[in-house]
Amino acid sequence: MIILSLLFIDNYLSNHLQIKIMNEKKTLTIILTEGPYRSQYANLAYELAMSALNNEYNINMFLYMDATHIPRRGQNPHSFPNVGHKYKKLLKKGADIRVCIRCATARGHACDPHSPYLKGIKITTVYDIPEWVLNSDKVISLG
């Protein structure tokens, strides 16, 4: 009876732990410093993030310096794919995308009474970087 109980507990624990391990998603943090169009970093970051999301990763993106231009609404490039549309797809897929308030304010974005950013973009501080680094499995900086 004792052996059967132990086997049951052992089986329960191994199944439970296995499920827990399977549910623990890995987290990738991308720190981007370049703006859109002048370089391809914004597109590269999009491709990386989308691929990671499709592979069940949590995605954090911190947009720093000129990268705070990337998630603006109303972009209308004539010769390039629209980066704003791409980042909208990332937000829909669950990416956590934040812009640095110091950088955004300097560029006239954060102070706008009507948010110039895509719905879902968070305006935060550089202090999110250490928090995200501590909770990430991998950090990639681009720019």
Partner: peptide, 20 residues
């Protein structure tokens, strides 16, 4: 702006007890 902003990140990390 890069050097200034780079130091800013390092300072933020250290203020949050993350070795940097």
């Amino acid at each position: 702006e890069d050097a200034f902003s780079g130091f800013y990140v390092a300072i933020a990390c250290l203020n949050r007890d993350l070795d940097a």
